[in-house]
Amino acid sequence: MTSGNTTLDGAGAEAGVTVDKEQILSIVQEVLSAMLDAGEVLVFESDPHGESDNDLYAWVDMHMVLPMGDLSARAVVRTEAATANVITQSLLMMDPSEEVSTEDLADAFGEIANVVGGNVKSLIDVPASLSLPSVSAVGSDALSGTFLQDIDLNWRGMPLNVSLWILTDATEWS
């Protein structure tokens, strides 16, 4: 499940709901290039890097209406708190020495997940709605449901991970 093309399992695949790994990479590159790196692409696929105690998670949920019923998926962006701090400073054009508030960090990191998730949703050719973003330091808050796909990335030398999950029990669609 960690490489190659991935479909939203079961009913998602039957309904033609597919998102491949290269599309996710392309979305992340476009989002970070435009929002953080003045048009330059500074994020690339990397070797796998596991979770750490310093990680933060930002996510949005997509609720899709398929012929056989509703299906919910989640897009999660994970990175270390220090990287989320740099993301916030970059988005707000702050000096690296300036302190980032908890509120701004959650807002900025959540917006990255929101834009990534919104672009993933745009790939899915079925009626769908998007939730507001959530941010947590607790992995189990974010990483729930059936794992579909993830991609490990390196942004400016810092680790980043984007993963997709099915929130509804996918087996009922198979």
Partner: peptide, 27 residues
């Protein structure tokens, strides 16, 4: 100005009277 720029949403926006939809990320 929204993170979602699907054809379905563009149609909904136009039908409601919006003049344009700029998808994030933007320049």
């Amino acid at each position: 100005v929204t993170s979602e720029g699907s054809p379905e949403m563009r149609e909904q926006a136009a039908n409601a009277g919006a003049l344009f939809l700029i998808a994030k990320p933007f320049s």
